[in-house]
Write a protein that binds this DNA or RNA. Structure first.
Lengths: 231, 231
DNA sequence: CTGCAGAGGATTGTTCAACGATTCCTCGGT
DNA sequence: ACCGAGGAATCGTTGAACAATCCTCTGCAG
C-alpha cells in the first residue's frame, strides 16, 4: 500500500477546478480502471485523504459517488473496498449488455449509419494489439461497444451502459492472461462493423448475440479458475 | 443450519438500510413523488436540514442519493433543485423504455411465464380507477412496466429502469388531467398481459411498441400545452 | 500447543462549528 | 431604465470531537 500512496500524491496537482469531491472521484475512478487499486483493495480514509490532501468529509463524499457507480462497496464500520465481482455479477452484466446492445442494433433505422466512432474504436484496438498493449485492447473493445450503444441516440441509455462497462472492467482486472481474453474480439468487432456498413441489421444482431455469449463464457471460465486458485 | 444462514443473508439488505441519510431520502422522494415539492423547487440545506433535524452532511448525502436517481439536479454553489424535465428528456425516457421493454419481451424464453406481478399491477390499476384515484392508476401503470422489465431477471436492468420510471413520474406531475393521461392504459396493459399468457411474444412486443408511441405522443402533447400556458 | 476472553488501539460513523468562495439580491448612482 | 458595488445568503470544504465498531495482541486456562 505504501508505494500506491506515494503514487497518489502525484495526482494532487490535478486538484484545481470544479468540485473537490468530484475531482477526487475522477482520480480514484481512473486508478481503479487502470487496475492500480485492484478489486478487493480497501481504501482507507486516513491514508488516501492524507495522500490527496482532502478532508475526510470530502473523501467520504467521493466514496459515496463511486459506491453509487458500483465501483466500490461499503461495509459498515469497515470502510470501502474496490468491488469484487461475483460470477453472478458478471453474468448479469452480460445479460444486460445482450439485452441493450442487441436492442440498439435491432432498433437502428434505415442505413446508412454514422459508424465513425465504431471504426475509430476498431482501429484503436488494432493499434494497441500491434504494440502488445492488451489493456489498451480491452479499452478499445469497451469503446467499440459504447459507440455501438451510442447509435441509439439516447443519453440515458448511454449513461446506464457506461456504468455497466465500468463494472465490466473490474472483471477484467482479475484475469492474468489479457491477451487470450481480448485479442479474439478485435476481428469480431471489425466484422460487426463491416456488416453494419452494408446495412444488414439482422446479421449484425445475430453476430453480436453470439459474440456476447462467447465472451461471457470466456470471462466466466477464466474467472472461476482464478477464484479457484485463491480458495 | 445452511438454509438458515442463507435466509439471514437476505435480511442483511434490510440491516444496511438503517442509515439516516436513506430515511431522509425516502421522505424527500415520496414528497417529490406526491408533488409536495414540484419540479423546479429549490431544496435549501438549511431549511430542510432544520425541519428534519439532521445535520448538513447527512442531508447532503441524501441529496447525493436523489441526484443519482435523477430526481434532483445539483448546481455548483447554488444547491439542489427538483428536476424539471424538458420535452427532450421525456422523449429520451420513452426511447429508453421502448428499447429496453421491447427487448425484454423479445428476449423471453419459452412460455409459460410467471406473470403474477403483471396481473397484480393490472388489478391495482382497475381498483384505483374504480375509486377515481388517478394518481394510483399512474402508480399501477408504472408498476406494470417495472414488473415487465423484471421478467428479464436482471438485477442491473431492473435498477436502470427503476430510475427511468422515477423520472417519468416527474413528467406526470406537470399535467393537470391525470385521468385522460392514465385511464386508457389500464385496458392496454391488460391486453398485453393476456397476450403474454397465450405466449405470443411477438404480438406482445408489437402491442407494447405502439403503446409506448401513443403514450409518448400524449405526454408530449400535454407537456407542450402546459409549458405554453406558463410562457 | 491450542482455544478463548478481554483489553487496547485503530478505524469508521456522525455531528458540529467555522471560514472561504460563490451566487443572489438590493441599493444607490448615472 | 440600466448598471455596478456591496452586503446577505448559501454552498463547499475543512478540522475537530466523540461514539460505535472492528481488529489485534496479550494473557490465561485447558
Amino acid at each position: 500500500m505504501a508505494e500506491q500512496l506515494t503514487g497518489l500524491a502525484d495526482d494532487r496537482a490535478l486538484l484545481g477546478r470544479t468540485s473537490t469531491a468530484e475531482r477526487v472521484s475522477d482520480i480514484l475512478r481512473s486508478r481503479i480502471a487502470d487496475g492500480y487499486f485492484p478489486p478487493g483493495t480497501r481504501l482507507s480514509e486516513d491514508s488516501i485523504g492524507g495522500a490527496l490532501g482532502v478532508s475526510r468529509n470530502t473523501l467520504r463524499e467521493s466514496f459515496r459517488l463511486l459506491t453509487h457507480e458500483r465501483l466500490l462497496v461499503h461495509e459498515l464500520n469497515r470502510g470501502v473496498f474496490v468491488r469484487v465481482l461475483t460470477v453472478e455479477d458478471v453474468e448479469d452484466i452480460y445479460r444486460t449488455r445482450a439485452l441493450v446492445e442487441c436492442a440498439v442494433v435491432r432498433g437502428l433505422g434505415e442505413p446508412p449509419y454514422v459508424l465513425d466512432g465504431l471504426a475509430a474504436a476498431v482501429e484503436d484496438g488494432r493499434l494497441a494489439a500491434r504494440e502488445g498493449d492488451w489493456k489498451g485492447v480491452a479499452t478499445a473493445n469497451i469503446h467499440f461497444h459504447r459507440e455501438l450503444v451510442a447509435l441509439a441516440g439516447s443519453e440515458r441509455t448511454d449513461e446506464l451502459m457506461r456504468s455497466v462497462f465500468a463494472e465490466l472492467r473490474l472483471a477484467f482486472h482479475v484475469v492474468d492472461d489479457p491477451r487470450r481474453l481480448h485479442e479474439p474480439y478485435i476481428a469480431r468487432n471489425a466484422e460487426i462493423l463491416e456488416v453494419l456498413e452494408t446495412g444488414e441489421r439482422e446479421t449484425a444482431e445475430r453476430l453480436l448475440a453470439v459474440y456476447l455469449e462467447d465472451s461471457l463464457k470466456r470471462v466466466v471460465e477464466v474467472y472461476l479458475r482464478r477464484i479457484g486458485d485463491e480458495g
